[in-house]
Design a protein around this nucleic acid. Structure first.
Length: 401
RNA sequence: GCAUCGGUCGCCGAUUGGUAACGGCUGGCAGUCUGUAAAACUGUCGCGCAUCACGCGCUAUGAAAGUUCAAAUCUUUCCCGAUGCA
């Protein structure tokens, strides 16, 4: 049977690897960072920029948010999320599973599914594995995520076990409904492509918080069901950073090596490099766009906050080493002025740069792996970022300003 | 020039003889953000010190002088503003 996606490893350096992921709509080099476009838009960044300059091949959309507004039926009638939004490259849609975690105060969780009170207008809404698959078919994304429950990072072992067991049952229900929908042509994004089925791909999600034995158990259950790719969920949700690295180091090498490994919701530039070194292929994170909107820029020398008074007369770009269109043209002083004056362009410019930095970092990561140089790259990259990000003791910080 | 009413933090106000750093707004300074309820949120903003935390000291109600144990508050003069009359 023809596959929904095609995945090939092209180079390996330690656990780190590069690959080519082909979907029905685009060819994606991995390791890849996928900008988050929750509501059908990568906040503050036009598709023209994502396509031409940033060259993002795949972005995210969100089942829960698009279901609430404008609604799955609206998008289905308009021909799916690609046609509706005009984004013609690949889409990965999150299932709403993360909202089970992030909107914990607004939901009731049962075996059957999750009742949400809409954060928009308070309506009662019911989301289940089946409903999530139906919405994602209407959206027509290239990669569909199973509906999972994401337990808090520091959840105790019994809570985590119950959670991952339900996630496994939900994974099976997700797959069953997904297959039915594919077979009855409910996917709005169907597109014939050479050697591919033209259908959607479905990724399973491994949970288990910081408990390694549970992670292994969740991995086994998920692989047993069988998916086109495998995601690691439930990291960067409140646990210590060391726990995340420990879980990755343990888990990623055990995941099927012939399918892409996707670390959901991660992370900082350091996290990306660390995770790649442990064998992860795909990432998404809100940080570049959210931090961009709130004045914080990621650079090769670490993070900076454009609001800081020290940038008022700084005529240099956000990152001297960055070749993006923002850094080629605009100074920190000007962007800071825009931010202070509450001009929306400040958020647009920093978000753009941040995405450029993330995508460019991934490009460098891939190149280093291909050259067999990844270890050296990783050390240099992390050392450089550390210079600005080192936390100084409060007394030292005060005296220097 | 005369009369009346005023002058408290960047702005507006509370304090009307008994510890003025009390409230609102605007703005400043800094921090946070990881499958987006976020163009958001948190802290702080008289000065100095301390800071893990609780704090500690000093100064301050247009200016000066006076009355008083005690003055933003009462008195006098001056400065500034608004209004009215010449």
């Amino acid at each position: 049977m023809e596959k929904a996606i095609e995945w090939k490893v092209t180079a390996q350096d330690g656990e780190a690897r590069t690959g080519i992921l082909r979907t029905r709509r685009s060819e994606i080099e991995t390791p890849v960072f996928m900008p988050v476009g929750t509501q059908g838009t990568v906040k503050g960044v036009r598709f023209e920029w994502l396509e031409a300059e940033l060259d993002a091949r795949i972005i995210l959309g969100n089942t829960y948010h698009l279901w609430l507004r404008p609604g799955a039926e609206v998008i289905r009638e308009l021909g799916g999320l690609h046609k509706f939004s005009t984004w013609n490259r690949s889409l990965l849609t999150d299932s709403g599973g993360f909202q089970v975690f992030s909107l914990a105060d607004l939901r009731k969780l049962t075996e059957e599914g999750v009742e949400f009170r809409s954060h928009v207008n308070g309506d009662k809404m019911f989301l289940s594995p089946e409903v999530s698959m139906e919405i994602q078919a209407a959206l027509g994304s290239e990669i569909v995520m199973v509906f999972d429950e994401c337990a808090p990072g520091a959840a105790p072992i019994d809570v985590t076990r119950r959670s991952l067991e339900m996630t496994a049952r939900w994974a099976e229900r997700s797959k069953n409904r997904f297959d039915e929908l594919q077979n009855t042509g409910m996917d709005t994004g169907f597109l014939e492509a050479e050697n591919l089925s033209g259908k959607q791909a479905l990724f399973g999600i491994i949970q288990g918080a910081g408990h390694l034995d549970l992670r292994r158990e969740s991995l086994n259950k998920t692989v047993e069901i069988g998916f086109d790719g495998y995601a690691i969920g439930g990291l960067s949700v409140g646990e210590e950073k060391s726990v995340m690295y420990e879980v990755l180091e343990f888990l990623a090498p055990q995941m099927p090596s012939d399918a892409p490994r996707y670390l959901m919701g991660v992370g900082t530039p350091e996290d990306l490099v660390e995770a790649v070194s442990r064998g992860v292929d795909m990432f998404d994170c809100v940080l570049p766009t959210r931090n961009g909107r709130t004045g914080s820029a990621f650079t090769s020398g670490g993070n900076l906050n454009i609001r800081n008074a020290k940038f008022a007369k700084d005529s240099e770009p956000l990152d001297l080493e960055c070749a993006c269109s923002v850094c080629r043209r605009y100074s920190k002083a000007y962007i800071r002025h825009l931010y202070q004056a509450k001009e929306m362009l400040a958020a647009v410019l920093i978000s753009h740069h941040n995405l450029a930095f993330f995508l460019d970092t991934m490009r460098k990561v891939r190149q280093a792996i291909k050259l067999g140089d990844f270890k050296k790259f990783r050390n240099e990259f992390l050392d450089k970022i550390k210079v600005n990000n080192e936390i100084q003791p409060p007394s030292a910080r005060r005296k220097t300003t």
